[in-house]
Design a protein around this nucleic acid. Structure first.
Length: 443
DNA sequence: TTTTGAGTTGTTCGA
DNA sequence: GTCGAACAACTCAAA
């Protein structure tokens, strides 16, 4: 028997969802499926992972919603390729709908599964949902990808193609899925939802930010976003990552209220297309010239950085915020990343991995882009001789010490750590190390 | 093809 | 304390 499946992945919502909309519009018996991917889950370093817990809770609530409207969500746990192979063998000539994902490993997985479907006489329909513009929609006039943000952004805004009001652009409009909910399958799942425990994970204490963002926050974003003690950022990252909100909906709001906030969403598209066109950046510097830096990679110092014991209050506060909440304010991400790569001369990949393990909002493209920017080896990176001064940054962005005191309560007492390195020495050491490597580079 | 202008988020130094 | 220039020179995008 042929069947139509809609596969939820990084788009965990039933409204304004491109692939779901098309699946429902074009078919009248659509089965929603989610797979807890064992390949991904088994690589996570901790059994306490708030992201897994968040996905599990989200799936539970989506399943309930579907049940409430007379349908169901089929949830599996295992290797997606074998699960789909199994489902195809029961339902020949099946159709699969999903939203595209742009990470190297996911592209490979989706390619293999697409082949499974086509070989069995079925077909696969993939849609853009995760970004506003995909890799080939905003390019230079010669068709090649941009590698500098500002011209990319100009072209991106032009591509919205709406005369006076960006928010009215066709590209930001919603997919009204609910008008076709009557095309959802009525088949019930034979199994109960797998529990977190059955997958080997424990609940955590970490709180997930909400999906709403107030008008005033976006309006005041430009003014407040750089101060970690203020509640000036939206904290929507995790929802963009897992698609529990629609990027189009938030971009419409941003387009009306704040050019700077919209700009941050454009960065997200920018790094997504960088990762797509230059997948080697996942492992190597975007600029090969920077691959030869002699990192010191001192493990004891790395450990201190991770734990927030460097003696630099703004750095330590950031790392402890990350460790205890799964979040770090963006200003502080830049400071801690600069400190690790430049002051300690530790390979940016070590820091990137640590953030990947800890950040609720971890997204490969943006995290990688940010780290390479901080290390000076990425697209459009800060010149290597721009080294954040942690004293100055503290003074500028946490003047009244509110943020630092929140996460480093012993700051200012004898119990606080000594400086792990002297700023002036570390700065000069960094400049010399980068210069040595760049001078030695032969193309 | 050549030329020109510009590039997320900074720091330090000296007047 | 405040201001502007230097940092070091490179790469990209577009005219």
């Amino acid at each position: 028997m042929a069947k139509t499946f809609f596969w939820l992945r990084r788009d965990l919502r039933l409204e304004d969802n491109a692939a779901l909309y098309h699946a429902l519009k074009e078919n009248d018996d659509v089965q929603c499926v989610f797979i807890f991917d064992k390949n991904i889950l088994s690589k996570l370093p901790s059994q306490e992972d708030a992201r897994v817990e968040f996905i599990h809770q989200t799936i539970q609530s989506l399943k309930q919603k579907l049940v409430d409207i007379g349908s169901d969500l089929w949830v599996y746990y295992g290797d997606p390729q074998s699960i789909w192979a199994d489902l195809i063998s029961q339902n020949t000539s099946s159709k699969l709908y999903f939203n595209r994902d742009y990470e190297p490993s996911t592209k490979a997985r989706d390619k293999a599964i697409t082949e499974l479907f086509t070989e069995s006489g079925g077909d696969v329909h993939a849609y853009k949902d995760h970004v506003i513009f995909e890799q080939d929609e905003v390019t230079k006039d010669d068709g090649l990808p941009y590698t500098v943000f500002t011209p990319y952004k100009r072209k991106w805004l032009k591509a919205l193609d709406s005369d006076d009001d960006y928010s009215s652009s066709y590209y930001l409009s919603s997919y009204p899925c609910s008008q076709y909910y009557h095309h959802l399958s009525k088949h019930k799942s034979l199994q109960d939802l797998i529990s977190l425990d059955q997958m080997g994970f424990n609940p955590t204490e970490i709180e997930i930010p909400g999906t709403e963002v107030s008008q005033s926050l976006i309006k005041n974003y430009e003014e407040k976003r750089n101060f970690p003690a203020l509640n000036g950022t939206s904290r929507l990252g995790i929802h963009f990552r897992f698609g529990t909100i629609s990027i189009r909906e938030k971009a419409r709001k941003a387009a009306r209220l704040s050019a700077i906030y919209l700009s941050e969403l454009i960065w997200r598209d920018f790094y997504s297309q960088i990762l797509y066109h230059f997948p080697y950046v996942a492992d190597r510097a975007f600029r090969p010239k920077y691959e030869g830096i002699e990192w010191r990679n001192n493990e004891a110092e790395f450990e201190k950085w991770c734990k927030g014991q460097t003696g630099y209050p703004i750095v330590d506060a950031g790392m402890r915020e990350l460790n205890t909440t799964g979040f770090m304010h963006n200003r502080v991400r830049m400071i801690t990343a600069s400190f690790l790569t430049k002051h300690l001369l530790i390979d940016w990949r070590w820091g990137e991995q640590y953030f990947a393990d800890k950040l609720l909002d971890f997204d490969l493209a943006s995290n990688n882009g940010g780290w390479q920017w901080a290390a000076g080896c990425g697209t459009d990176a800060a010149p290597y001789f721009r080294i954040f001064n942690p004293h100055t940054q503290f003074d500028k962005f946490d003047k009244n010490e509110k943020y630092v005191k929140q996460f480093v309560p012993e700051y200012g007492t004898d119990d606080y750590f000594e400086y792990i390195v002297d700023h002036k020495m570390a700065r000069e050491r960094c400049l010399a190390t980068y210069k040595r490597s760049l001078d030695a580079y032969q193309a």
